[in-house]
Simulated scan of single mutants.
Amino acid sequence: MIVASTRVRSERSEAENRPLVAALEERGASARVEPWDAEDAVAGWSAADLVAVRTTWDYSARREEFLAWAARVTGVTTLQNPLSVLEWNSHKRYLVELAEAGVPVVPTRLVPHGSTPEPLGPGRLVVKPAVSAGGRGTYRGLGPELEETLAELAAAGDALVQPAVESIDGDGEVSLIRLGGRWSHAVRKFPPAGGFLVHERHGGRLEDHEPTPREREVADAALACSPAPVHAARVDLVRVDGEPVVMELELIEPELFLRRAPEAAGLLADALLATL
């Protein structure tokens, strides 16, 4: 088995990949971590029974290249999560599709690449690229203040407009992690003082979280829209009018916070092996 990662490894990626490789080896599987874009690793994909996309955290800046790689891997071995999922989940128009399917989501408007965006209202909004990860290119502010930024985003690619979710400031964002057929664990992510991005690299902090039945219900509804079954998923939820709604559905390379749940690496290994 090959675990696909970025070329540049970090403490965060090692914390995700080391426990997984160890758990796979404990189960009798041979596993190693390779950069998804390493030329000298191309021949190895076909020799692997399974390639697991895990910490390919640079894919969003090279989406077409990444999907072309995933298609090549799919042609020679088993890829998890599957190519159809990677294609669908790598563009945030899926949020619009979730809403159309009746899943509670943060209201999202897609601004097509090359279009002239409509004037923004006076309320606090968030604008971001439709292909992005980790909060890259995400801006929050009053509508008129963001019009020039939105125009620049739309000139470069598809963009999104959403209302600012004010509850993030105090309640943070909840992430539910599903491994195989069960919910494994969950965390609550808080932004730093004065900020709104909850990722740790933006100064955010984590604490353990016990999901409510309604949070699981919303997360299940979002996962049901995936174009194919997945071995692992992370569903990010925020509160709007007191109710949980989907902020992001992470099915490509989500950080699963394995370090916060000792049994999670084993569950992830079992889920991967079950796809063979």
Rank of each mutant, 00 (worst) to 15 (best):
V230T: 08
I168L: 08
S13F: 04
L50P: 02
G121V: 11
G102F: 07
V73F: 02
A186N: 02
E207N: 05
L276D: 07
D169F: 10
T108K: 01
C225D: 06
S226C: 11
S10Y: 05
W183D: 06
E166W: 12
A193I: 11
P144G: 15
D49F: 03
S5R: 03
E97Q: 12
G102K: 05
E64H: 09
V126T: 06
P119N: 09
E253L: 01
D40F: 06
L206M: 08
T212V: 09
S60Q: 15
V8S: 06
Q80M: 08
Q162E: 13
D37F: 13
L176T: 04
V105M: 10
G157Q: 10
H185S: 04
G123W: 11
P211I: 03
A221W: 08
A4C: 02
I2T: 00
L272F: 04
L160W: 11
H199W: 10
G157V: 09
V53A: 06
R234C: 04
V103Q: 02
L268S: 01
G141I: 10
E16F: 00
M247V: 15
G44E: 03
A70K: 00
E200S: 15
E200L: 15
L197D: 11
D241K: 14
S175L: 04
R54C: 04
G157K: 14
R18N: 13
P107I: 15
R216G: 05
P211E: 03
S30Y: 08
A41I: 00
G143D: 08
Y94P: 04
E148W: 14
V187C: 12
Y94N: 02
H199A: 15
K92A: 12
L251D: 00
A71K: 09
E97W: 08
A29P: 05
A221I: 09
E215Q: 07
R260D: 14
V240C: 13
E215I: 00
R54W: 07
D220V: 03
G135I: 00
E253V: 00
S90F: 10
R32E: 14
E215D: 04
H209M: 06
G195Q: 11
P213I: 10
P104Y: 14
P244R: 04
V126W: 10
P144D: 14
A155D: 13
V33W: 03
R205W: 13
A4T: 02
R93D: 14
D58N: 13
A22P: 11
L160D: 10
V238Y: 04
A29Y: 00
V103E: 11
